[in-house]
Design a protein around this nucleic acid. Sequence first.
DNA 1: GTCTATACGCAGATAGAC
DNA 2: GTCTATCTGCGTATAGAC
Lengths: 223, 223
Amino acid sequence: MLTTKDKIITASIKNFLIWGYEKTSLSMIAEDIGIKKPSIYYYFRSKEDLFTTCINYIMDSLEKSLTDSIKNIKSSKQMLESIFTTLFEFNSNLSLLVGNSYDKPVNMLNLLHLGINRFCAVKERIDRYYDTLKNVFIKMIEIGKKDNKIRKDLDTNALALELIAWIEGLFALSTVYSSFNINTMRNSLYNNMWKTIAMPESQKNGFFKKKPFSKTISLGTKW
Amino acid sequence: MLTTKDKIITASIKNFLIWGYEKTSLSMIAEDIGIKKPSIYYYFRSKEDLFTTCINYIMDSLEKSLTDSIKNIKSSKQMLESIFTTLFEFNSNLSLLVGNSYDKPVNMLNLLHLGINRFCAVKERIDRYYDTLKNVFIKMIEIGKKDNKIRKDLDTNALALELIAWIEGLFALSTVYSSFNINTMRNSLYNNMWKTIAMPESQKNGFFKKKPFSKTISLGTKW
DNA sequence: GTCTATACGCAGATAGAC
DNA sequence: GTCTATCTGCGTATAGAC
């Protein structure tokens, strides 16, 4: 059984995701759950207070899912898959919350951005989330490099940020570009992503297998 | 010499980018250029009309820059670099317009998204822009594959969308994540991006050079 | 073309009854 | 805890003078 406070938070997240901060009115939220506008003020000091609570709620929950999802995973490929899946599932849950179909992701980045330029508490919470996410990716990349599964010629820090941007960009793009359905392409997107960062098959055991071959051509030869 | 209409459009783009659609008021725009609010209605029927004009203005200009930038370019690597540079420069120009420093990109995706859920004319224009952008990327990838510069094991359509998402995601991320400065990392981001899609050195002339070597090991061996 | 004056609605927020 | 009633301010938009 959800408390009134929980209902307000859920309805707020839904409306903020659909309409953004400004266009969401407290009356809309109240109407969604069958209460009157002033009742919201019993639980929250202001619209800003309500918004900040929603962002914290989302970020806490997403951060927990992420750290849980990679616990006890040792392989970098499984880690990437797990992060990928967690982010997709989280987005799908938000999609269902706002009443979208499975095929229409929500634009969370957009909501975050709306909050950042207005409230500094939101800005700090979001920075903390991305610090966490970046560290998860860095850990995955370092394990992959150590195990010869991920290419070593890619800058780790830049790659972590690029993978985050890549995934966030996919969600964002799918909300602005009608012909792009992220879910029907999900597998080929993930496969491409892994292929681009993975160590090429021919170099995986390069040191042991290739050395004799390398010696047969002169140093410095380009081929 | 800018006409009043041009000044209104420029000031509107600036304010829409900073504050979003709802929070931008016609008084703010008028004040920015030293006119009074009702004067705007001499040039535009409504706030929606003004917004739509701004989005069309931005999209037309960006589309033109993009198609111009890849004219007469034959190599895929140069094309990617050119697209990358054009998108960065365009974003920088918008940054300067809103009064941001060079280091603080604007979030155009965010603005587009705000418009899409409200006005269908905007939605159609944006779809058209992404169609164009996607075709530019597909052309680049096809040339690259033909010339053995880009890996052939990556799905072309998915890759085109991923590269768009990647770049858009980088801009978006840099506007929500304080510790990420897209400009200081620009070179390493681009290098990583090219490396991940480029044909590995060892396979570039694979057919001719590697065949003799391949024959020395048994078929089906994983290495 | 640009202005002053103004209509009208809805937003966030509060007072106080039950 | 939840409501009705109400305050105050700002938004878009229009009428009409100059």
